[in-house]
Amino acid sequence: MNRINQKLTEDKKLLSIYFSAGYPSLHDTVSIIENLEKCGVDMIEIGLPFSDPLADGPTIQASSTQALKNGMTSEILFDQLKGIRNTVSIPLIIMGYFNPMLQYGVEAFCKKCQEIGIDGLIIPDLPVDVYNEQYKTTFEKYDLINVFLITPQTSVERIRFIDSISNGFIYMVSSASVTGSSSGFGDEQTAYFKRIADMNLKNQQIVGFGISNNNTFSQATQYAKGAIIGSAFIKHLSDKPIHKIDEFVLSINN
């Protein structure tokens, strides 16, 4: 069983953390992942940096830009991660934009992910229909779960379709926004979280965008299986050394 599916069976709300690989320093990737697992984080999204990250706000874009300046590439990331399964057992997902994967070769990229022990991919700008028609069999061949996004504007029919072709979890974008832009959830978002929960989808949902602290984490996971924190964690990384990651995780999971 894929580690993501295994994790989703656990009877707890899942905390997932996103960071940009190669930030703050090029070779921090492995130690950030190891520290996150040690602190009790349930799942990690490793951001493959891109020059033009359309769906990301200023914090994640700045960390991507810095990571690229530091020299991060797909090849280097794979190299850094090649022994990761000797020390880390939680699910690992690579999150990135489609062009770098396309240039690497989608099949070669997937193959490499499987060799390393990556469990899934999140590719915001790979459209659902293109994935379904052109890449689904490749992802499945290498036992990779592709995670799709839904937003408050996604129609019911489309959510049902996305649910039908998903086999892990659904990434529920909390609001109409880029990453890092919300400061707490209001009634509108709570109603949306509940509306999706009431659809009884076959895939559980994990909420992303706008989760920055214990309060927003609790709100987001009232109806959903878990939540993803990105920008707030990256801010922490830019202020504090890696061995202080536990302070951040404790502040969410207290």
Binding site: D52, L54, L68, Y97, F98, N99, P100, M101, L102, Q103
Partner: peptide, 22 residues
């Protein structure tokens, strides 16, 4: 340029071998 994705379109674009837009 080489084939790739820029601003939502598959087309020819100037990029690094790693797929970063130049």
């Amino acid at each position: 340029g080489r084939e790739g994705i820029i601003h939502g379109s598959k087309t020819l674009l100037m990029q690094t071998s790693d797929g970063q837009i130049t």
